[in-house]
Simulated scan of single mutants.
Amino acid sequence: MINVVFVCLGNICRSPMAEAVMRHKVLEKGFDEQIRIDSAGTSDWHVGKPPHEGTRNLLDSYKISYANMTARQFASEDFVQFDYIICMDNSNADNVRSLPGGEEAEIIKFMDLLPNEKLREVPDPYFTGNFEEVYELVNAGCDVLLDRIIEENSLS
């Protein structure tokens, strides 16, 4: 099993959106028995809460499930459990790296999946209110990431 975790600050906007979109893409391509997707936040502010209403509304509009998703905090144990750790912005990546075991972990910055985009961090719609912008970035980045995972792990 290949394990992927998306990480943002509170785990209610960006990372659960990426988790839901990636799960949807993995299921569509028939890799749901080979690839497991999760998300986490670097803070504990929203632990146990569902995704933000803006994220839920947007995912509903695209008919993408977020069933049973609740916020959790990223922990050092995640370094062992996950093969791909994808951080939504530089602060998230720094916070993850600062945990015990983080200095050796391979952390991917989400926007590095989209090198032609001007933005170098996924904007936080909790503050900007622009969930559609985040969806467009997440949708494109998840396509690139899934192709990368398929290629790197020789999935067919």
Rank of each mutant, 00 (worst) to 15 (best):
G10E: 08
N11E: 10
I12L: 04
C13E: 06
R14M: 03
P16V: 05
P16H: 08
A18E: 09
E19P: 00
E19N: 10
V21D: 09
V21G: 10
M22C: 07
M22R: 02
K25L: 14
E28C: 11
G30N: 10
F31Q: 01
F31N: 01
E33Y: 05
I35S: 05
R36Y: 11
R36T: 12
R36N: 14
I37A: 10
S39D: 11
A40C: 11
A40T: 09
S43M: 10
D44K: 12
D44N: 14
D44I: 08
D44L: 02
H46F: 06
K49W: 05
K49S: 15
G54Y: 04
R56E: 06
L58W: 03
L58P: 06
L58S: 03
S61G: 00
S61Q: 07
Y62N: 01
K63D: 14
Y66G: 00
A67P: 00
A67L: 09
N68W: 00
A71E: 09
Q73L: 09
S76T: 13
D78S: 11
V80Y: 08
Q81D: 11
Q81M: 10
D83Y: 06
Y84W: 12
I86L: 13
C87A: 15
D89C: 05
N90A: 15
N90E: 14
N90S: 14
S91L: 11
S91C: 05
N92Y: 00
D94V: 13
V96F: 02
V96K: 01
R97E: 13
L99D: 01
L99I: 02
G101H: 04
E103P: 00
E103A: 13
E104D: 14
I107G: 02
I107P: 04
I107L: 15
K109H: 15
M111R: 02
M111D: 06
D112E: 15
P115M: 06
N116E: 15
N116I: 01
E117F: 14
K118C: 04
L119S: 12
D124A: 07
P125H: 07
P125Q: 08
Y126C: 06
F127M: 03
F127D: 01
F127P: 00
E132P: 00
E132A: 09
E132I: 09
E133F: 00
E136F: 00
E136S: 08
L137C: 01
L137A: 02
L137W: 03
A140I: 00
A140S: 14
D143K: 12
D143A: 07
L145R: 03
R148E: 14
